[in-house]
Write a protein that binds this DNA or RNA. Structure first.
Lengths: 199, 199
DNA sequence: GTCTATAAGGAGATAGAC
DNA sequence: GTCTATCTCCTTATAGAC
């Protein structure tokens, strides 16, 4: 933001409009006005509306959930699995609640069926990374005899589903305090979940 | 369908287009063509595009999940709780997979953030009925000492979340066989779920 | 209840001056 | 890199004949 880059600004404002009105419902005109330039100037940076959309998706696809969530600090807590799970879920929910991430999920949910530009945008892809991380965590817990010998795939699925539903339900509201309510709910569920799988 | 009703036909085709392209992405022209009349003729039945959308939502809101799922036949199986849960989930997934219901969920996911016509369209509202039914079921099981004394709210939430995620993930694909894959996954999860809560 | 014709405006996109 | 001006097409919606 220090060195205002028009191209970057366009994708930011476009993400704003796309995530609020959908791809079809947002117009180049509105985006240009939000950026502070004329529509025609947009075409100096992107060759079409679809091109802007693809740029946004490209940024979205280049993120790595693992890097954002599973840092060393968290991994140090593995010897306290209950706390580890809580912090893991808490970190995830906080990350999901960052402004851009919220917009991305909204856009994903809106455009998953429309297939603009023959580009796939699927919920599966979105939760699969989380699923994989959970599978790893629960496998490890079972191997170390911390958790009961359940199928790690099923545990991962249940954990993922819980986080996904609660997250999805709180995407519409914009209140700042909302995240604390979500964190409370998540905490209760993680606590229950851990108690039912721990040895 | 025996007595072709133009008004009904319009909402049907509109639902088709809305659920595939979103509200903003579908045009009266396309809908009229699908119905087999001119755009102007649409306005004999609805005063605006938004009016069509509201008619669709009104139909969607008038459904009752309970009536469609919880009939006497199913309730007779309550003395065999494992089978009951399986059939309950199976019925629900089959109902969710009916063409119109699929379209409704797609439309809901797409338009939950746009607020066309100041009408609320929320995922919460969608899953709340299911949540309530599950809460009742699990409360009853606990009271009758069939299930462990867990918090029925949490059990209901986990059961709902599981069904919702799996359902959401399979909304994009149109293959007829897909429902069998979904039913298999659900079956596995319900089985696991029941085993972990039964006395 | 459907048609033709048309209005009025917004959409995406381009040309060429500065 | 942004501007003005313009093109072409599509959008929702209305008027009035049949």
């Amino acid at each position: 933001m220090k060195y205002p880059n028009t191209k970057k600004l366009i994708t930011e404002k476009a993400l704003d409009y796309f995530s609020n009105h959908g791809y079809a419902g947002a117009s180049i005109r509105q985006i240009a006005r939000a950026v502070g330039i004329r529509e025609s100037a947009i075409y100096n940076h992107f060759k079409s509306k679809e091109d802007i959309f693809l740029a946004i998706l490209s940024e979205y696809k280049s993120r790595s959930l693992t890097k954002k969530i599973l840092n060393d600090e968290l991994l140090d807590e593995l010897d306290n699995p209950g706390k580890f799970l809580q912090d893991f879920a808490g970190r995830l929910v906080n990350y999901w609640n960052t402004p851009n991430e919220r917009k991305f999920i909204r856009l994903l949910l809106m455009e998953q069926f429309t297939k603009v530009g023959s580009l796939e945008l699927s919920v599966s892809e979105y939760v699969n990374e989380l699923r994989g991380i959970c599978r790893l965590i629960f496998s490890e817990m079972i191997k170390n005899n911390i958790a009961k010998k359940y199928d790690p795939d099923i545990l991962a699925e249940q954990f993922t589903a819980l986080l996904f539903l609660i997250r999805t339900e709180h995407l519409s509201r914009e209140e700042k305090n909302d995240i604390n309510i979500v964190l409370e709910i998540i905490k209760k569920h993680v606590s229950f979940f851990w108690n039912s799988i721990k040895v």
